[in-house]
Nucleic acid binder design. Structure first.
Lengths: 153, 153
DNA sequence: CGGATGTCAGTCGGACTGATATAA
DNA sequence: CTTATATCAGTCTGACTGACATCC
């Protein structure tokens, strides 16, 4: 049960540190220009490739009409293209433009650059823990995928 | 210079994993009920204790009128109290109520609980990397504090 | 016609800018 | 008077709900 206590303790500390670190990390990519929701849509399209509106509905935390409007904005901004699905007349196919891909890439580059500056200032003793942190985060994501669908909502 | 390449590579991978993991992590606390900005204000008051509006202005990413209105909402919701500073007639002192503190606590508990579920599903090989990840995150925060003020904006 | 996909209309919260009141 | 602190007024972006059009 010492192990139980330790596991809970670790979750507490990890959560606390993640919250604090995130407040810094999320700003590394710089100001968004486009809103959070729009950014999230662009990001999701980047990860998934061409998708329909209803595919995005599952991940984006907004409702259909808001999503529709958001996509219209993104199209107007030249970040996304809409085309009709020849297989299904009801569906639109959404896809990032080159500018949309560039936006994602630029933000990620800024994050990397900011993170690099921080890493350079790390004490030598911490350098080794970076790669284990990377695999830890990946493992936590795997663990999350395993629980998806079994959780309510 | 092999070390240079590795450092950049690590920053890239860490940034990518953090972005992906965050999309899960930020949802662990559940829906906000109150908006993002309001939540951020509550969180900041929790971390700093009693503050004035202009203290919050530095950290919150909104302007004075929006901050003022947001605080009014929080007061109406019973999460924050305003009182005048007897030392300075211009200033309001903002402070979390018990309900406000409870909100922060509840959200953190949900994060911890969600994280614990994920940790329980980790392969044994990753269990050891949690505590090193905690110290890494803390070290990265320290590194960030060192660079604050030297960066533009 | 029934279910899925997407849009239209009206409303509302919450941000912004610019002007303004009050205290130091 | 000038600066700091906070609010008021008007506008705008982007979310929501509910009704509706369109295609399978």
């Amino acid at each position: 049960m010492n192990r139980e206590l330790t596991a809970n303790d670790q979750a507490e500390r990890l959560a606390a540190e993640l919250v604090r670190f995130n407040s810094v990390f999320i700003r590394l990519a710089g100001p968004a220009e486009i809103g959070f929701s729009n950014l999230s849509i662009v990001h999701t399209l980047h990860e998934r490739g061409p998708s329909r509106l209803s595919d995005l509905l599952d991940t984006e935390r907004i409702k259909q009409p808001a999503l529709s409007a958001a996509v219209n904005r993104l199209v107007a901004d030249g970040l996304v293209t809409r085309s009709r699905d020849p297989q299904d007349g009801r569906a639109s196919i959404l896809q990032l433009t080159a500018a949309g891909e560039q936006l994602v890439r630029t933000r990620q580059e800024r994050r990397v650059s900011g993170l690099q500056h921080l890493i350079e200032r790390l004490p030598q003793s911490e350098m080794g823990s970076i790669s284990s942190a990377i695999t830890l985060l990946a493992a936590l994501m795997d663990a999350h995928r395993m629980t998806e669908g079994t959780d309510s909502e």
